[in-house]
Simulated scan of single mutants.
Amino acid sequence: MKVSALIPVVAIILSACASTSVTPVAKNKIIISTSAAPACGRSGAAKVASKMAAVETLRRGYQRYVIAGANVEKNVSVIHTGPTYANTYSNASFYGNSASMSSTTHFGGQRTIFAGSNDADLAVVMFNPEDAGFSDAIDAKSELGSEWETLVKDGIKTCS
């Protein structure tokens, strides 16, 4: 299979590979919990969680944030199923008193299944200009880039 043929398949797999929940723990503190598909990897889950920290900061009326704590886990399993069919091909040749025989069996129908998720949790503290620590915090709009308004509206759903 050509690499160019794989690009659309990978794009479809990664198109909606992450989900995030937000738990408020104080007026300016939240916990971001992100689960991402096995194809995203731990770094993909962490990337989504980090971007969602910026999104949630803006959604809640703050300008900057600090990640006060982080946890990333890989909860992915790989299961390889056994064959579901077998075909045997045999060949025999006889010449006088001697015989030559061979047999080949092909097994098929095996599958590799990736299950589970990569998870990231971030403790986020949000700031406005009048708050102590504002100057040391990350600017949410800068972190999201020029498309920040769309990302705040739609959220982050892919790890790519």
Rank of each mutant, 00 (worst) to 15 (best):
G69D: 07
S50H: 13
K47I: 04
A68S: 14
S90I: 07
A45D: 06
R64T: 09
Y62C: 00
G44H: 06
V48D: 13
G61L: 04
G61R: 07
M52H: 10
S77Q: 05
M52A: 05
E73K: 09
G82V: 11
K74D: 15
K51M: 15
S90V: 06
G69A: 12
S90Q: 12
V48N: 12
N71C: 07
Y89H: 08
K47Y: 14
Y65K: 08
L58E: 01
T84Y: 05
V55A: 02
A46V: 10
I79Q: 05
A86I: 05
G61T: 04
E56S: 12
T81Q: 04
L58S: 04
N87Y: 03
N87S: 07
A54L: 06
S77C: 01
N75L: 15
V66A: 07
K74L: 11
V72Y: 05
I79H: 02
H80E: 08
S90L: 07
G82P: 02
V76R: 00
R60C: 01
R60M: 02
Q63R: 15
Y85C: 03
A53T: 03
S50F: 12
A54K: 12
K74V: 15
A54F: 13
V72I: 13
T84V: 08
A70V: 10
S90N: 12
K47P: 04
E73W: 00
K74I: 12
N87L: 05
G82H: 13
E56N: 15
Y65I: 09
M52W: 14
S90M: 11
G69Q: 06
M52P: 03
K47S: 13
V48C: 15
Y65N: 05
G44Q: 02
G82D: 15
E56Y: 15
N71V: 09
A86L: 01
V76C: 00
R59V: 01
E73C: 09
V66T: 08
N91D: 15
V78G: 00
Y89N: 10
V55M: 04
G82K: 13
G69W: 08
K47G: 03
T57L: 10
A54T: 11
V72D: 05
V78P: 00
N71M: 14
P83W: 13
V78N: 02
P83S: 12
E73H: 05
Y65A: 06
A86M: 06
V66G: 00
K74R: 14
A86D: 08
A68H: 03
N87W: 04
R64G: 09
R59W: 02
K51N: 15
T57Y: 13
T88C: 05
G61Y: 06
A53G: 08
K74E: 14
K47C: 10
A46P: 02
K74Q: 12
G82M: 11
A86Y: 03
V72K: 03
I79K: 05
G44R: 03
A49C: 12
V48A: 14
Y85P: 00
V76K: 01
A70S: 14
Y89L: 02
L58G: 05
K51P: 07
H80V: 09
V76S: 01
V78S: 00
H80Q: 06
M52T: 09
N75P: 08
H80R: 10
A53F: 07
Y89E: 11
T57H: 11
T81Y: 04
Q63D: 11
